[in-house]
Amino acid sequence: MALTLDDVRRVAHLARIAVDDAEAGAALGQLTRVFGLIEQMQAVDVSGIEPMAHAQDLVLRLRPDVVTEGDQRERFQAIAPEVDAGLYLVPKVIE
């Protein structure tokens, strides 16, 4: 499988990272090298093997459905780029 410049641009868009042409070109070269390494995986027969998502086969713990954290809005918003009246501000998305 050969990666193309369009793949790099598409993936960068999905990842919400702006790339100009020079960056996309450089990324293509390096990602091609990395995928050369990753392709080694294809040599092994993996039929019948269960995927391992996690180091321990854990069952997710459940806890009682009660409030454990108090209101931290002011503390958390003190470090936000832009807030007003307890709301995070972003550029307008709805006209």
């Binding site: 294809q42 993996v46 093997i49 391992m52 998502a53």
Partner: peptide, 8 residues
């Protein structure tokens, strides 16, 4: 595939 190899 990577997760399967992880198990191996």
């Amino acid at each position: 595939r990577a997760q399967k190899l992880r198990r191996l």
